[in-house]
Amino acid sequence: MTALGLLLDASVVLLLVALATRLLLTRHLFEAIVLFVSYGLTLSLAWVRLGAPNIALAEAALGAGVTGALFLNTYQRLAERIGDGAKSPLLEDDGSQDPPSWFKGLLGGGVILLGLGAGWALIGAGRRPAFLPHEIAARLPETGVQNPVTGVLLNFRGYDTLLEIAVLVAAMAGVWSLDRGSRRFGRARGEPDEDPVLHALTRFAVPVTVVTAVYLTWVGSTEPGGAFQAGSLLAGAGVLLTVAGILPPPTAASRPVRAMVAGGMAGFVLAGIAVLPLTGQFLHYPEGWAYPMILGIEALLTVSIAVVLVELFVDVPAVPEPDPALESIDPSGDPLGRALRGGEDS
């Protein structure tokens, strides 16, 4: 490792810790969100330095991109409701609800002790030779792909990836049921966005993103890339299209959206079952069929992941409508909801 490389590593590490500390301690929500996006991009640099380009791609698109967009969208909705210049604990936390300082002191001490213990344990331990990476490398030809990460994700640990898609579908169902499917996002029909910068950016960025995503899916079997990275990129393009008002917001209430999301999981499960008579094991691909099956599953997953992520962006971040069922129990509840309705009537 060169001195220049060490300098870069040290800068990235210091920047990461400083950004994390600052964004967690600041009292302004907007500042925290901007720092969060910077943190995500710095973290993707760290993944590159750690020799994990597969993760760096996903981190830049998801950790910084989609999550940052989620927070920014939430912020924007709340700021619009509060009005210009008004102070609100929603966006500026004065810390008045925080626990007392004796609790913070005690917790701080405990956390420092925990850190010293973890550092001592992790630096001291872990010198045993590992056999698993060599085992994976030796048996990689059996997976039908040359990218070891794709081999692990879709062959050795196919179960994990299947269950991950199930988690995504569950999260989508959860978010949607919080909303009860009412429309939350997007411009009213017939109200095109006139922002020339946004439109120019969309026209330039979306085609490039889509081509890159298709390439990443295709190349994922040999080079860094695959369904997760491509799905994240496509989701970014979808968010851009939705924000620009070009694409109708893909809420989970619509059947095509549900079909596309369920399709990824259904295809994965069906592929797992289809190989049962041939190999006798769920998701155990028959010899010679691994590569086409993985490619097909990855293509389905790319679409599923992209649609779920855009749906999470569209259906979550807005102030939920007041719930008449809850309001009838407690008429004093939901002042924000009432204020919103008052604002729409006038």
Partner: peptide, 16 residues
């Protein structure tokens, strides 16, 4: 890689 995708989904649900 799996964790990052799940984290985004969990964050969206928590925000909701």
């Amino acid at each position: 890689l799996t964790g990052i995708v799940v984290a985004v989904a969990a964050t969206a649900l928590a925000l909701g």
